[in-house]
């Protein structure tokens, strides 16, 4: 989570990125520093409201003296570091990571995936037609949201959002191990029999579209989902006196999903089930 603390200004550290001197406040990650320096670092498991587990490894950079590459999203900047963001080694790992991901996961709704695959010249087909895939179908077991784990890159963001980092519901976890690892509720059952409170905060952080509003899922299936035809309207949730900021995404006069701004100091993008899904009542109220 990148929270800028108020109060005493933090000490500045000096180090180099691609041979250019840079200064960032103590505690900054290399990703913060690289982005401040205008470098284009791809990220998947990093989210602006969460502390990343650094699982995807697409953000790796080279740090002088380090045996391996390091994930920019979690490594803290240190004075005197020499960081390189676009060496052959870095590009190689990013390309392979993209090939491994795209050969095992449906990235069709992952923003920027196609762009990165092109940029890094990744060829996911090279592993042949028999390359193993988890082969999960979408789980449509409730009216509010769909879990399509064939699109999941196991970034752990939904688990962290549902658990200790935000929601404290702990309804989902990673289960299994290695290539068989999956996101699941207890006993891998349906959502309705779990601790899920339908806050949708996992959907908010999912970087791949593996988790989506039922409305979006159905419209995509019907071929009617069209982001260019959608408007986003800011409003305030009327369900309780907290008054969370909502963004209503509307297509053809229908609310198709509800989000909240990640930089909002109250919600950080999180809502409760009334804010997230309560519009269904609005719409049903004719």
């Amino acid at each position: 989570m990148t929270v800028t603390p108020l109060g005493i200004p933090r000490r500045l550290l000096e180090f180099t990125i691609d041979d250019e001197k840079t200064r960032v406040p103590e505690g900054s990650t290399l990703l913060d520093a690289c982005r401040a320096a205008g470098k284009d670092i791809p990220t998947l498991c990093h989210g602006d409201t969460l502390t990343p587990k650094s699982t995807c490894r697409i953000c790796v950079v080279e740090v002088e003296g380090s045996r391996t590459l390091v994930p920019a999203c979690s490594r803290k900047a240190e004075p005197g570091m020499a960081v390189r963001t676009d060496t052959a080694r870095v590009r190689h790992s990013r390309r392979i990571v993209l090939e491994l991901l795209a050969s095992s996961t449906d990235l069709s709704t992952t923003p920027k995936a196609a762009e990165w695959i092109k940029k890094y010249e990744a060829k996911p087909d090279r592993f042949g037609p028999d390359a193993a895939r988890p082969g999960e179908g979408p789980r449509v077991d409730n009216d509010l949201y769909v879990r399509d784990y064939g699109k999941c890159v196991l970034c752990y963001k939904c688990v962290d959002a549902c658990g200790e980092q935000w929601q404290n519901s702990f309804a989902i976890s990673v289960c299994g191990r290695g290539f068989d690892a999956r996101i699941a509720v207890e006993h891998d059952g349906p959502l309705a029999e779990s601790a899920c409170v339908y806050c949708g905060n996992c959907i908010e952080v999912c970087p791949t579209g593996a988790l989506s509003f039922r409305s979006e899922f159905d419209m995509r299936a019907a071929g009617t989902w069209d982001e260019s035809a959608q408007t986003a309207t800011a409003t305030v949730c009327a369900h309780c006196e907290v008054g969370c900021t909502l963004t209503l995404h509307v297509q053809d006069n229908e609310i198709v999903k509800v989000t909240s701004p990640h930089d909002n100091p109250v919600t950080h993008g999180n809502l409760c089930n009334k804010g997230r899904f309560g519009h269904q009542h609005v719409q049903n109220r004719d």
């Binding site: 699982t55 490894r57 991901l101 390359a131 990673v174 290695g178 290539f179 068989d180 690892a181």
Partner: peptide, 19 residues
């Protein structure tokens, strides 16, 4: 079989290596 599955290079890479 022993990859914990946390990170992509190992989780998928060990499978592609075996294949």
């Amino acid at each position: 079989a022993e990859s914990c599955g946390l990170c992509v290079p190992c989780r998928v890479g060990t499978v592609r290596q075996e294949e």
